[in-house]
């Protein structure tokens, strides 16, 4: 049975990765699973300087999902390279670093510092551009195009992944990302959402709007992966509410070459291993020799 897949130049022994922000930087999870069994690890988003993040409450549970407004809290580039990366290098798995910035220059600085240091760089573009009054890179064509173009010039050795937001039209933005040189796409990021306390009439989260994740967003994510698959030829990393191997297979049939497990890690620290086992079981019971043979295998022309 072949489970090995390729994302850009990254060869993964299986298609199961972690979703950024749901797996820390590795050590916490190493208590629960063998990190070497993962296809790849994607760490929490890194910015040039450390960020404190938002005030609490940062989390609110919703039907089959959760809202979060962590506010991009992270240790910053320097501390990541010094304190976090050496731990991950001890393992025999590809390391992908999620990067976030407030300007094109910040993305470029991060890309330059990380290129060749890690296997992959994933651009989280669901960040406000400070200079254009807080418009998200992920939802403005001009900003989106420019930031990928500039980062691409600086990423020469690592695989460059562009993460798409569910707020922008998937087809157009997938095509732009591919044209600007992305080696792969990942989707979806959380969906902006709001929950209100009807007693106080205040939002449930201190910051108001949060990002929705978990099983509640899965059908939206599967549709978007399918749309992206029909629009580009670069490999796609699918995510959004994956809890089981069956969920992962759904994403693969929609066109994902690899899948990322996010919120499920909070419920079962070994969620990635459960998903991997579920994929194996499905392949076995359906006589599938190579996982790549069912990528985009949905029997529907659309």
């Amino acid at each position: 049975m072949n489970l090995s897949v390729k994302i850009g130049t990254i060869v993964m022994k299986n298609p199961v990765m972690t979703a950024s922000g749901t797996f820390g930087y590795g050590p916490e999870m190493a208590e629960f699973i063998d990190l070497n069994a993962l296809g790849a690890i994607v760490v929490k988003g890194i910015s040039v300087r450390p960020k404190q993040g938002n005030p609490p409450p940062r989390i609110w549970e919703t039907p089959c999902g959760m809202l979060n407004s962590i506010g991009l809290q992270n240790v910053g580039l320097k501390a990541f390279l010094r304190d976090k990366l050496p731990f991950l290098r001890k393992y025999n798995i590809p390391v992908i670093v999620n990067i976030l910035g407030g300007s094109t220059e910040e993305y470029c600085n991060l890309a330059e510092a990380l290129d060749g240091q890690v296997h992959g760089i994933e651009m989280n573009l669901s960040c406000p551009n400070v200079k254009s009054g807080g418009i998200m890179f992920s939802s403005d064509r001009a900003l989106f195009t420019e930031v990928i173009r500039e980062v691409r010039k600086r990423v020469k050795r690592s695989t460059l992944i562009v993460k798409l937001s569910p707020q922008a039209p998937v087809r157009d933005f997938s095509i732009i990302a591919e044209a600007e040189g992305a080696d792969a796409l990942s989707l979806i990021n959380t969906i902006p959402a709001l929950a209100i306390d009807i007693e106080t009439r205040r939002p449930r989260l201190a910051k108001g709007i949060g990002g929705l994740s978990g099983p509640a967003i899965k059908p939206v994510a599967v549709r978007m992966v399918w749309e992206a698959y029909r629009s580009v030829t670069v490999p796609i990393i699918g995510m959004g509410g994956i809890m089981t191997g069956e969920d992962a297979i759904e994403f693969i049939l929609a066109g994902a070459t690899a899948v990322a497990v996010g919120t499920a890690n909070f419920i079962w620290p070994d969620a990635t291993m459960r998903v991997l086992k579920g994929i194996r079981d499905y392949m076995q019971s359906h006589g599938i020799e190579d996982i790549n043979s069912i990528v985009g295998g949905i029997l529907w022309e659309g």
Partner: peptide, 22 residues
């Protein structure tokens, strides 16, 4: 007490402000 998702330090959901930061 703070709202928690993972309980094992990976989600950063349970951040609490202290004199030395979150």
């Amino acid at each position: 007490e703070e709202r928690m998702a993972c309980g094992i330090g990976v989600c950063l959901g349970c951040a609490y402000p202290t004199r030395e930061g979150m």
